[in-house]
Amino acid sequence: MDYSAPPITNTPPPATGSVSGKAVRPGDRIFLGLSRGSGIALLVIMAAIGAFLTYRSVLAISGDKANFFTTLDWNAAGLEPKFGIAVLAFGTVVSSVVAMLIAVPVAVGIALFISHYAPRKLASPLGYVIDLLAAVPSIVYGLWGALFLVPHLGGLYSWLNDYLGWTGIFSYSNGAARSLFTVGILLAIMILPIVTSVSREVFLQVPKMHEEAALALGATRWEVIRMSVLPFGRSGVISASMLGLGRALGETMAVATVLSPSFLIGSSLLDPGGGTFAQNIASKFSEADTFGQNALIASGLVLFVITLLVNGAARLIIARRKEYSGAAA
């Protein structure tokens, strides 16, 4: 059996790419059909996501014996299911806001550091490392947060309690630091790389002319940044923050590992308790029956709508910036 030498035939290979002048070649038609079909498939998937989530949510909410939006409880099992998203909405918003308050100034600082302050030789490797860090899986952040960050925050929290405990927001009663505030800090660390790398891109696009004009007027480096870099980059930073916010809102595993959940809205951010949409889904899922899963899907739909709104706003801002920078270029 020797297949190494195929039999030689005299028939020429079939002519491909004929030079005929037909209106539409079949190859073109097939290819256009395939690629257009893929685009349509994508739309169908999106529509299906919305439709199926809504369908299951309607099943769940119609069986809910309490108000879905205001109830401070999640009890979807039994004959009298009572569940509501109030605690989840509160926890999601609070932890994301804390994350944004910490991450955005720091990210802008790092982006400025890379684009304007760091020694030239350091700048491009740094940008590279930041991009790499954006790829670290969220579960690793979660593991690190639960086993390293939480034990190290207790001291800081009792310090905050000593000096700011009277505000109520920062009161802390010496438990494990598995609170919404810790979640916020961890989320801030997680979204730092993405916010930084987008902001850095924008800062690097600032026209050199603007900066040189400011320098020529005798501005210090900070004045250059304030007068030419920040105004140019403002909308870029806003949209980068919104992208980060979108991630923080939907983050599941890092929250599920760090937070010690409860269905109460407490005034203190440092004490354990609270919950977020994604965390609640992940931790309640394994013990839920079909109705319980419907209820979780309903809360997922709310999360979906919120992230859509945030992302939509970010896209709008980016689109406006495109026009602006196009005019400037």
Binding site: M46, I49, G246
Partner: peptide, 24 residues
Amino acid sequence: VVTFFVDVMTGIPSIVAGLFILSV
């Protein structure tokens, strides 16, 4: 429309994608 929905899709939280397949 496709461009717009690709943007929208980028922002889907991973748990929502999981819930969608779960429900279907």
